[in-house]
Design a protein around this nucleic acid. Structure first.
Lengths: 114, 114
DNA sequence: TAATTGTGATACCATTTGGTGTTATATTGA
DNA sequence: TCAATATAACACCAAATGGTATCACAATTA
């Protein structure tokens, strides 16, 4: 039963929502406070916050009549881990580069995927 | 001039496209070969490949009448780096957890890939 | 109590997205 | 040359997306 990455990646696939995450990394904010930072109606911001909540990237707590939105950084991990799979390939290239530099004249074969 | 993350995150925000990336991490494939792996027409797969190409996550090379699609792992880095900003917060929590427990006995490893 | 404020919910619109099917073009191979 | 193949390009459709405007309701405050 693997974790469903889709809601996470979906939530991350919008620049406004990524900006909101950065904002919330500094402060917990109400909907109105978030909306204040964007050239957009509260309704539009609320929609983004809902999608972020569905991706569990934020948690929302009722505080009187306000809703405080809080970053949930842990939810970013699965996406991060997924991407880190490809780190291998960066390393492979770096290793190849290192090897090429270090050997510099005796090594000639680099059987990479071509 | 900061790199535009949008085409990258957009390309990553679809499960089919993420699967294609995994596929291409093992082999360079033509459109038909990629399409063979999915319950979807070639046309639909081609659209996904175009979006992946727009995000520079793959490179396409003409080889006779075929188009060979190749993974470009470097293009994943910017997204990876963006997410790594939040690593700070995981570390903060982990440090707090470590401090709270103090008698560690580690358990981990559940590599969830989509 | 009444007025104000923060939010949820809904209806609505334009655009994008994911998908299909068809047709056209270029390359390969007999 | 001709047939088969791999793809591009296009029209088309249903659904999702990003946005607005508006109304209703609960909590605060005068």
């Amino acid at each position: 039963m693997s974790f469903d990455l889709q809601p996470t990646f979906r939530a991350l696939a919008d620049p406004t929502r990524r900006d909101i995450l950065k904002l919330l990394s500094q402060d917990d904010l109400t909907i109105a406070e978030v909306a204040q930072q964007f050239d957009m109606t509260r309704g539009a911001v609320k929609k983004h916050l809902t999608i972020l909540e569905e991706g569990q990237l934020i948690t929302v707590t009722a505080k009187g009549r306000e809703r405080v939105n809080q970053l949930n950084p842990d939810a970013i991990r699965p996406a991060f881990d997924w991407l880190s799979f490809f780190e291998t390939f960066w390393d492979a290239r770096l290793d190849a580069l290192k090897a090429a530099i270090e050997t510099s004249d005796s090594q000639n074969e680099s059987p990479s995927n071509d």
